[in-house]
């Protein structure tokens, strides 16, 4: 089966196969001193300041979903990447690929939601590009945004700075974006009030970094969900992460959908949540800073960084036993029964 070299959906799921695509294809040809496997990079400027640049493509279907739309998502995604690198987002460019036949009124709804979100984030959209494909050659609308920000404070959050004893915090309940998209695709006859968590994190992170400049890690959970982010941090920092299942904030609607389809909420996408790791003694300050900002009121501690099981995430169960949590990897396939 491995000899069939074609791109499959798993290559885009943000898990192992995505990494191998980056390593084996992109890195091989793009290798240079500033190249990262992430979607954002830090560029040192002659002035001594640091410029942060990040880019992201958005192909969500449907374009409109409860709690947001592809426009809001395209701003939040890139703003959140920049903010999680400890930078203040400043400017954005946006590129649109639109399928012939797309309603102008829908386009305007999307663009106006981009405007509103950008305002909320205090950023300006300064350039863009538009391409239209023949009908059937793309699907509705695809948006790519590229953002710029500057690091103006002495902060250095990084996926490789988690260390033993640190507290692992999540900024709110998990999995709502993934669940909202599943429900709004209308594939199951489910109706639910569930709303995407899609939101900018820049204000929350600013408050956090003011209160705890020495925040060790900030990572936003995106399509791979919280589980993928925890595994990335455990590997980059060469530590173990032990979460407590009972402390994971999951709404009852998300739990319901997960048990129906056999999904783990740790692997449902979030678009307005971040994993934050701070020293134990900074825990309370970090929590109260986060809780003071709209969108991260639900911040809570979900676990701890440990010195065992390096590179792995484990969970303490309701029964007090410790198990691995599933590794990130494949796109979610709902089970039978």
């Amino acid at each position: 089966m491995n000899n069939e070299k074609i791109v499959t959906l798993s290559h885009g799921s943000g898990g192992k196969k995505t990494s191998s695509l980056i390593d084996e294809i992109f890195k091989k040809h793009f290798e240079n001193p500033l190249f990262t496997a992430d979607d954002g990079a830090v560029i040192p400027l002659p002035s001594g300041k640091k410029l942060v640049m990040s880019t992201d493509g958005f192909i969500v279907s449907p374009s409109f979903f409860p709690g947001g739309d592809i426009g809001k998502l395209s701003i939040c995604g890139t703003v959140n990447d920049i903010a999680c690198m400890g930078a203040t987002p400043l400017y954005l460019t946006a590129s649109f690929i639109i399928e012939e036949g797309f309603l102008i009124s829908d386009l305007e709804r999307i663009v106006s939601s981009m405007e509103e979100t950008a305002k909320y984030c205090n950023i300006n959209i300064i350039a863009g590009d538009t391409k239209v494909t023949e009908k059937g050659k793309s699907d509705g609308i695809f948006i790519t945004t590229t953002g710029f920000g500057v690091i103006d404070k002495e902060t250095n959050p990084s996926g490789s700075r988690a260390s033993e004893g640190d507290s692992v915090i999540i900024t709110g309940d998990i999995g709502r974006h993934g669940a909202a998209i599943l429900v709004s695709r209308n594939d199951f006859s489910l109706s639910s009030e569930i709303k995407s968590d899609c939101a900018p994190l820049c204000h929350s992170i600013r408050a956090l970094l003011s209160a705890v400049p020495d925040t060790h890690v900030i990572r936003d959970c995106t399509r791979g969900g919280t589980g993928t982010v925890l595994f990335e941090i455990a590997r980059q920092s060469d530590v173990g992460i032990r979460i407590e299942r009972d402390k994971l904030p999951v709404s009852s609607e998300v739990n319901g959908i997960c048990s129906l389809l056999g999904f783990d909420p740790l692997y449902l996408a979030c678009e307005g949540r971040a994993v934050v790791i701070v020293k134990k003694e900074d825990e309370e300050r970090a929590l109260s800073a986060l809780r003071s900002v709209n969108g991260s009121e639900g911040a809570c501690v979900i676990g701890r960084v440990v010195n065992e099981n390096k590179g792995i995430v484990t969970a303490l169960t309701t029964l007090g036993t410790e198990v691995f949590i599933p590794e990130p990897g494949n796109e979610l396939l709902p089970r039978i029964c």
């Binding site: 089966m1 069939e4 074609i6 979610l332 396939l333 709902p334 089970r335 039978i336």
Partner: peptide, 16 residues
């Protein structure tokens, strides 16, 4: 059903 798609059969799967 989704989870049947990855099951190998005859060196292939429905996903492939």
């Amino acid at each position: 059903f989704g989870d049947l798609l990855r099951v190998p059969g005859g060196g292939k799967s429905l996903l492939l």
